[in-house]
Simulated assay, not measured.
Amino acid sequence: MTDSRSALSTLLAGPTGLGTSAARFVAEVAAARLPEPEAPAAEPETPAVEPVHDPAYAYRPWGDGSAPPLYCPVTERIDDVLAEEVNQRLVSWAADCGFSDEECEQIGKTGFARLVMLAHPDCDDPDRLLISAKLNAAWWAADDLYADDTALGAVPAELPPRLALAMAAMDPLPPLGEFSRELDETLAGDRVLIALRTGTDYLRQYGTPAQSQRVCYSTFTMFVSWNAYAAWNHSGKYPPAWEYIAARQHDSFYTSMTLIDVLGGYELPANLYYDARVRQAAIQAGTASVLVNDLHSVTKDLADENPPCNMVLQVAADRGCSVEEATETTVELHNDVVRDFQEAHESLLPVASPELQRFLRGLRSWMGGGFEWHSTSPRYRTDPAAAEAH
């Protein structure tokens, strides 16, 4: 079998070896200096060819149906029996972490187990699905209790030191004698930190060291964006949409997607995972999915005493337009990002790596499952009767 790393390198980088980078540079400069070729003689027009529709994608209505539909992958699997099995284990774990009965009930109703069932259709093992359910629940708890929801105790000025401890919880530090005692006590006394620590410990039972550390570092990158939001919130100087979306690309469902191969029971090698074009496709998938989150979160965010940043709200503020107009702009952006991912996926199909092809399909599956979850989770439903039905 062709080595997958070599295959991707050959496809994406062109010729390699001593002197080839300089040769490519000289060729590019020479090409840039060449005069424009003369326009060829006009040829008879041929009818435009309609692009072939990919059945893996569809325009999907959302919310109350008043906004334009979202171009999104279809949802590949709905298995609520499997989701409920994972959910029972998740709620039991949350109780062990120290969340109150009310909080555990809320975690169960939010449906993180259903999210991972929808987003990872190539995994039907409840123990593996529980990896993602635990970590997503822990990330959301940190987001709500530390970063976003002032009604739940989030204080912008206190976020950076809290996140420093969150990193220590996920990525254990070497012991430092007496200076570790208070740290250990703190990590053992905060339910969010316990959730992050035990969720990451559970990941390490299934993932390789490289996969586990990949999850940690993508989480810590996400925390940097959270600190930016906190600074904006604390100062009252909210960012323009372009600056917000720059930060949002590192605070997206990309972090959740780092678990795709772990749940699938394989490993995408690091030099493929971090190749520029593969990483770009993954960031596109994560960004598209988080724009779905922003679109569904507008009502909830507006109800907060200090509304968190949200792409729709930032566009509305920038342009002085209505939320409805900003929603249309955000939908259009989402749809463009999904099309960009679709093109990137297609361009990587020739790479002879089964792991890469499975991972790329996993990214697509995550987008389709994430859309389904946002459309049905009580967390984002404004109609209580409709939420109860799901």
Rank of each mutant, 00 (worst) to 15 (best):
M1E: 08
T2P: 10
R5S: 14
S6H: 14
A7S: 15
L11Q: 11
G14S: 04
L18N: 10
L18P: 15
V29T: 14
P35E: 07
P35G: 04
E36K: 08
E38L: 09
E50G: 06
V52M: 02
H53K: 06
D54C: 04
Y57I: 00
P61E: 01
G63F: 07
S66I: 05
R77D: 11
I78N: 12
D80T: 08
E85I: 05
A94N: 01
D96V: 02
A113Y: 06
V116A: 01
C123L: 12
D124K: 09
D127V: 01
R128I: 13
S132P: 00
A133H: 14
K134W: 03
L135M: 15
W139Y: 12
D143S: 03
D144I: 04
L145Q: 11
G153P: 00
G153K: 07
R162W: 10
L163C: 05
A166Y: 10
D171W: 06
L173Y: 05
L173I: 13
E178M: 03
F179K: 15
F179R: 15
A188W: 02
R191L: 04
L196Y: 13
L203E: 01
G207P: 09
T208C: 05
A210P: 12
Q211G: 06
V215Y: 14
V224Y: 01
W226H: 14
A228N: 08
N233P: 01
P239H: 01
P239R: 00
I245C: 00
A246F: 07
R248C: 02
Q249H: 09
H250P: 00
Y254A: 06
Y254C: 02
M257P: 00
D261C: 03
L263A: 02
G265S: 06
A270Y: 08
Y274S: 13
A276F: 01
A281H: 07
T287R: 03
L291I: 14
L295D: 01
D301T: 01
D304S: 13
E305S: 11
N306E: 12
P307R: 06
P308N: 13
C309M: 15
D318I: 04
R319D: 04
G320I: 00
G320A: 05
E324M: 09
T329P: 00
T329H: 08
V337F: 05
V338I: 07
R339V: 03
Q342L: 03
Q342S: 12
S347W: 08
L349M: 15
R358M: 06
E372Q: 13
W373F: 10
W373M: 09
Y380I: 09
D383P: 04
H390C: 08
